[in-house]
Design a protein around this nucleic acid. Structure first.
Lengths: 334, 334
DNA sequence: ATGAAAGCGCTAACAA
DNA sequence: TTGTTAGCGCTTTCAT
């Protein structure tokens, strides 16, 4: 069967396409009677509106984009869950784009958004965030854009984050309190704001306890961290580490195995992670649990708010949702 | 600045929009010279084609849909990685839809695809798969459709699966060989083909070892499995279980904790799971590792093949990619 | 309350 | 090789 169009409905009912369109969209300038006639026929013929015709005409697509570095990471997966929940409720469609930490890919993706393909964008930037600053600033002028987690400070728009500095401060303090004196912060990028925040919190705790920065330091890992991490742990003589990404946390377990370090005896670990298996690891992992679902939900909610009412100034709508420290055996005092 | 259109380019260059269009699409019926002139100006003015105008006209959107039950599950997350890798390479966009195991939501999503919003669909169905059979059969006649993992047998199209029956057979055999005599298969739905396959393999192993079906049985869990699972493990007197979903695997660890069962001494566990943390669990988890990334990639590759050449009959393109048993301590012989 | 008509931006016959 | 023209299916003034 041919695809049913608004024109076919119009012919069958001896009405104009304009009337059909209005009737289908529940316009109040249509009589109740014809409205019903139209909608009944539409249902009968299984009419499905062509979204592209509508998008072309209305210049809005009921579609948003989610741009993230990686999807096989429980933080991002949960965040998408939050985003999707809101989108589904609002009848929006969700396009997913993965950057795999490549700012080049990120740029290409952002460029495409100038086409009007999406009505709004939710993004958690690449580690090489600095490269995308300009594109993002530009884009945020054309479309509602909301950052979540990995933000770009310089871009004037809403940012949904967690209390990274405070969370790192609390994590560091916890390590100190269970006896660590040589703590390493395993970080992922010097450029990411959230990393800088965590580092701030880390140093604040060190300062507060008057621990020397010579023994307590930040190490950066980009892609394949395994070898480097083993080296760091071997040479670094750390008695405690904070892994600021989920991947790094498991890398620590791997490295510990390789180096035959006993956790938590030889080395205590805290991971920034939403791993559902954290409590079943050996040893169970003390985590900074980030409210991923809520962050996704908040970001999406805010985006839709801006989409609905263009007078919402996203710049003033940033929001911080606190993380929570779950203390487990990987930081058990010996 | 106004959005740059093909018409603006045409005016600036004193050419027709048709010529511009052809030049931008590298048509061979355009002289090298004008092609360059057009493309140069396009770049200069930062022209970005309107995808919706093009989609409306061409009746193709360079967009595919991925429909899955859940995203916070390492199998599906990895599968998406595979899909996205292929899609990005081919210049396609990926719409994500989550059903959260609701066949009602699934139906609504599938219905929308009749609009021509997407050129093709990759799907892993809900546990209540039976409900969607009809819609899927219908849809597969209008669009290229490829199942991955959770298939609908009755629908005549390509299916990318793993060797579920064989994998379950091997897993069961392994449990028997390490001494289990009362094995429980923890299943998720009676309707899912992959579950039925796994059950087949399970029974095959039991038969081969002449173990009575009275002691070795299949239990179904739908949503919130925790309480039910605790009951099952307490009453079932199992000495070994196979958790056929990732969630169920962690549920077993939870229940074991609650019931103070020691793994693997009191109960041995195998999980169908792609958890990257499997080796670091306590005890490390013996897993049936499913080739999620490859399955996603294969499904997407096949879909694009069908999209490119409409004579590819998907029905004959099904594919099975083997899983692998990783033996770890959760099935250690005592 | 309904309809005529224009047009969103692009592509593809067909002509020239 | 380039241009003319006619839409894709829908929404939206503006008339009636």
């Amino acid at each position: 069967m041919e695809n049913v169009t608004i024109r076919m409905l119009a012919e069958k009912l001896q009405l104009s396409t304009a009337t059909i369109s209005k009737a289908l969209n529940n316009s109040h300038e249509i009589s109740e009677e014809t409205r019903k006639r139209v909608q009944d026929l539409a249902k009968e013929l299984n009419y499905v509106p062509n979204p592209y015709a509508s998008s072309l005409r209305k210049k809005s697509s009921k579609t948003i984009a989610v741009v993230i570095p990686e999807i096989a990471d429980s933080f991002f997966a949960e965040a998408i869950n939050g985003i999707e929940a809101v989108a589904q409720e609002k009848g929006y469609h969700v396009l997913i784009y993965l950057t795999h930490e490549s700012s080049e890919k990120e740029q290409a993706i952002l460029k495409d958004f100038q086409s009007g393909r999406v009505d709004g964008v939710l993004i958690s930037v690449t580690m090489e965030t600095a490269n995308s600053e300009h594109s993002l600033s530009q884009l945020s002028k054309e479309l509602p854009l909301v950052f979540f987690d990995r933000v770009c400070e310089e871009v004037a728009t809403a940012k949904i984050t967690t209390n990274d500095s405070e969370a790192a401060y609390i994590a560091t303090k916890h390590l100190i309190e269970v006896g660590c004196r040589n703590i390493g912060l395993l970080a992922a990028s010097e450029q990411l704001t959230i990393m800088r925040e965590r580092i701030k919190g880390f140093y604040r705790a060190l300062t507060e306890y008057q621990l020397p920065v010579t023994n307590n330091s930040v190490t950066y890992f980009t892609r394949e961290a395994n070898q480097l991490l083993s080296d760091t742990l071997r040479l670094g003589k750390f008695d405690g580490v904070i892994a600021t990404t989920e991947k790094l946390a498991t890398n620590v377990y791997e490295a510990a195995e390789t180096l035959k370090l006993q956790l938590p005896k030889d080395l205590k670990v805290i991971g920034f992670s939403n791993l559902s298996t954290a409590r079943f690891l050996y040893p169970s992992l003390t985590t900074v649990y980030q409210p991923a679902f809520e962050m996704g939900k908040a970001a999406a909610t805010l985006l839709f708010k801006a989409l609905k009412n263009s007078h919402v100034t996203l710049t003033q709508q940033s929001m911080e949702i606190p993380s929570q420290l779950f203390i487990r055996n990987s930081t058990l005092q010996q």
